[in-house]
Nucleic acid binder design. Structure first.
Length: 817
RNA sequence: GCCGGAGUGGCGGAAUUGGCAGACGCGCACGACUCAAAAUCGUGUUCCCUCGGGAAUGUGGGUUCGAUUCCCACCUUCGGCACCA
């Protein structure tokens, strides 16, 4: 079978040739064409960490293939790329290798740009953005000022999460895991009281829970919903005996008559006042202990309850009962009001606390069906709703309306009202590090925090800075940089020396792709009106409660300022899984299980790597890399090469063979089209492999026919988004007009795709006994008749009469005996 | 504890609406070609079997003529949240 008269498939040569030509021709330039429908395909912008990782390829290749598919389907496609270039790793590498963060970052970008280009993606490089460029971060600062002007950026002193290794504060979203460690470096965080800048994302908590009109994965929606943590309840005001109000948030206003004590967070402002002299020493000791403990210790769920009695009492506003006020670290100052009403009969935490400190338990809810609750006999709290008992005027209220009735009651008394609480906190954006966009604020003695005027942007990041982390912002240590004048009064003033969280840069980057060089505005309005919103956004799920929630907030805030339109920036989101090492572990240099795409491209060519990444796992699931499997994909592309280039045999094709070929081609086209739409990339490749297997078998007979010409043309068009170089090369060698990537996606010939004969499965009692070939259009009567007459059925019926015969059109007959 | 995903051959995975379980590929075995090997091509490959069949999609039930698919309970595993009032 060896044919020596056709050239060998040399991926390296083919790929270099076409990448150069596409680049020279501007084949992937995306410009506004008002008469064409647009498609904005976006892949999450990479951090320039040094080398392009196989994970980047895994994320971007199918996104690129789908963008190409959309282009062939008549869309004017925008598929841009850029670099999320500010951030800690640059600074850490700078310290380690004593190289300036800027130099390190831009050298990495140069390397990664070359690596990205080897992928052969349809990126429009004219639109590349680098978030660390002055012309980019000028607008990041501009957005900060807009948020500031609209009251969505504010500064406050509060206990914040601090990473002792990276020497900076972190947003809550960037503190992860049970031991509450830094998302970047893994070091457990500590609390520090600092004055920091925040964005008021909590203003949008309710709206962020609404995913109507966007096609985002259930998983991301759940993660964001949990993160926002909505609780519906009521705020109720108790009073101390001295008359000071203590407001509590409760989700169970129906249990108000069951309150037997109150608990304040140790940091609660009323603690000092409430504490009686004889409890002073113990309370102060407890507060000090609580402060010393890390969050990890304090928030451990299985920890035994601790607390201290203040000696003070409060009055229950509905019952008038006098109840003791305690402090305990299970009540957090950062959630709700920092104080709770304790109902030990119906809340497990309060129950444990009451049992430990011998506080009374009072039953006020009797769930239907449960035995009558007796406080003395309970060994756990009963949180279920039910009929109210021992609840003053509300006694006898059924569980179904107890919540509403209780809220009405406290509202009538003027001591409370319905309220909703969210777990979401405002976004802390100050970072005490060098390599970020400076916060464009000036502090004036007279005017306080003043925004830098727009015409003075950008506030440039100086390069002559000692960047080693000291816990102080490096910009603060610069001898002159922070010295300036107040934009309002002109008096000497100080610049803010913290930089912004890099998630600020990535919250709006997809807008900068629209007009990366515009120096009048963050984006060009014409470009915006044509391209936005993003139609498909692809990337990892790890940003569900970081980037993806920030960018939605950002968009909504800009919408309310009239800067952008619509409620959401990205209409459809899809997440890829993760490529693991061959040992099924996360790839890491220390484990030595890293797969380098550059090596693979060298050995197999980009097309094989692309196709294998699309083939080897379900894209949304990912999985361990297997070095063996890639050979199969390489074999398939080589087979494609030889099958399409070998001269056709002179033989005459039979009508049956032609029909078979066309049927297979159009059936495959149908499946591939469907799978591109639904992100099922692995079955695209297997369908193409199957078709190639069939084509190579049929070629000897049909190689000279018009059907064969049609088959090769459709096959190459389907292959083009997956393997853009080899398909372009074969397209050219078959004498077709340049470029295959500007061709239209073929149309399915339904007539040709239709099966003429089908295999009818014959079951007896649900077990397959026979397969018979029948005409596709067979009617029910004939199908049943054919089944009953088959030899196997005769054997299995053993003379018995069928009780029932079930027919599924075009599929099977089941004979029930 | 709560929320969500996943469990199918030796391996990655496929199966459109409840209708042929294991497509496609890897690996393996055998064969062709070769002095030989590689490459390539071909055949086979879930398990058991008395060669008639039988069993099988994490486990146990249920619905159905028929369940990888729907329902209930559970196990394992991955991810998120977690003293959130």
């Amino acid at each position: 079978m060896a044919h020596t008269n056709i050239p060998n498939y040399n991926p390296d040569e083919v790929e270099r040739k076409w990448q150069a030509k596409w680049d020279a021709d501007g084949l992937y330039h995306s410009d506004i064409h008002p008469d064409e429908k647009k498609f904005y395909a976006l892949t999450m912008l990479p951090y320039p960490s040094g080398d392009l990782h196989i994970g980047h390829w895994y994320a971007m290749t199918p996104s690129d293939a789908r963008a190409r598919f959309k282009r062939m389907n008549g869309y004017n496609v925008l598929f841009p790329i850029g670099f999320d270039a500010f951030g800690l790793p640059a600074e850490n590498a700078a310290i380690k290798h004593n190289i300036h963060p800027k130099k390190w970052t831009y050298a990495n970008i140069d390397r990664m740009r070359t690596q990205l280009k080897s992928m052969g993606a349809m990126f429009d490089w004219r639109r590349e953005i680098i978030s660390a460029d002055e012309k980019y971060y000028k607008w990041t600062q501009w957005f900060f000022i807009k948020l500031f002007e609209h009251g969505l950026a504010y500064r406050k002193m509060s206990p914040v999460d601090w990473c002792p290794k990276d020497q900076t504060t972190l947003a809550r979203e960037q503190v992860v895991g049970e031991d509450r460690h830094c998302e970047r470096c893994g070091t457990p965080v500590i609390k520090k009281d600092l004055e920091q800048w925040f964005f008021k994302i909590t203003d949008y908590a309710e709206e962020l829970l609404n995913f109507e009109g966007i096609d985002w994965p259930e998983r991301v929606r759940t993660l964001q919903t949990n993160w926002i943590g909505k609780s519906v309840g009521a705020l109720v005001t108790f009073k101390t005996e001295a008359g000071d109000p203590i407001e509590v948030f409760t989700t169970r206003p129906d249990t108000l008559w069951g309150v037997t004590f109150m608990v304040l967070a140790p940091e609660h402002p009323l603690v000092q006042k409430l504490t009686t002299p004889e409890n002073q020493v113990n309370v102060e000791q407890y507060i000090m202990d609580a402060q010393r403990q890390s969050d990890i210790q304090r928030e451990a769920a299985d920890k035994e309850k601790t607390g201290e009695f203040t000696g003070g009492y409060a009055i229950n506003p509905v019952s008038g009962e006098r109840i003791p006020v305690w402090i305990a670290d299970y009540v957090l100052m950062t959630y709700g009001t920092g104080a709770i009403m304790a109902v030990p009969a119906h809340d497990q935490r309060d129950f444990e606390f009451a049992r430990k400190f011998k506080l009374p338990v009072k039953v006020v809810v009797q769930p239907a069906g449960a035995p009558k609750l007796e406080a003395g006999e309970m060994n756990e709290a009963i949180p279920a709703a039910g009929e109210l008992v021992n609840s003053g005027p509300l006694t006898g209220t059924p569980g179904s309306e107890s919540f509403e009735r209780a809220v009405e009651y406290v509202a009538k008394l003027g001591v409370g009202h319905a309220s909703t609480n969210y777990r979401l906190r405002d976004w802390l954006i100050s970072r005490q590090r060098y390599w970020g966009a400076p916060i464009p604020i000036v502090y004036c003695k007279k005017h306080g925090a003043v925004a830098v005027p727009e015409d003075q942007l950008p506030v440039k990041l100086p390069e002559d800075v000692e960047w080693k982390p000291t816990g102080q912002s490096p910009l603060k240590l610069h001898p002159t940089w922070s010295r300036t004048t107040c934009p309002i009064c002109g008096e000497p003033a100080e610049r803010e020396t913290d930089t912004m969280d890099t998630f600020m840069c990535s919250s709006w980057y997809f807008l900068r792709y629209l007009s990366p060089d515009d120096d009048k505005a963050p984006f060009d309005q014409k470009e915006y009106d044509y391209w936005m919103p993003v139609d498909t956004y692809t990337g990892g799920i790890e940003h569900a409660t970081m980037h993806l929630i920030y960018t939605r907030f950002f968009h909504k805030a800009l919408r309310d300022m009239g800067i952008v339109k619509g409620d959401e920036p990205m209409m459809q989101l899809r997440n890829q899984g993760m490529v693991l090492g061959e040992d099924s572990e996360k790839m890491s240099k220390s484990r030595g299980n890293v797969v380098a795409p550059d090596d693979l491209v060298k050995a197999y060519g980009a097309d094989t790597v692309r196709a294998y990444l699309m083939f080897f796992a379900r894209w949304d699931m990912g999985g361990p890399w297997s070095s063996g499997g890639i050979d199969g994909v390489q074999r398939w592309l080589r087979r494609t090469w030889t099958t399409l280039l070998e001269p056709a045999a002179a033989g005459k094709a039979s009508e049956g063979d032609i029909k078979t070929l066309r049927r297979r081609v159009h059936q495959t086209l149908k499946a591939v089209t469907r799978d591109f739409e639904s992100f099922e990339f692995n079955t695209i490749i297997s369908s193409l492999m199957e078709l190639m297997n069939d084509m190579s078998k049929l070629k000897e007979k049909v190689g000279g026919s018009a059907a064969w010409a049609e088959a090769t043309e459709i096959y190459l068009k389907m292959l083009a988004p997956v393997a853009p170089h080899i398909s372009e090369e074969l397209w050219e060698r078959l004498g077709k007009p340049y470029s295959i990537h500007t061709q239209s996606w073929p149309r399915v010939d339904e007539e040709a795709a239709r099966e003429e004969e089908i295999t009818l499965v014959v079951q007896v009692n649900g077990k397959v006994r026979e397969r018979i070939t029948v005409p596709a259009g067979i009617d029910e009567e004939s199908a049943k008749k054919a089944a009953l007459e088959s030899e196997a059925v005769y054997r299995f019926l053993e003379g018995k009469t069928p009780k029932q015969v079930i027919y599924v059109r075009g599929r099977l007959v089941n004979i029930v005996v």
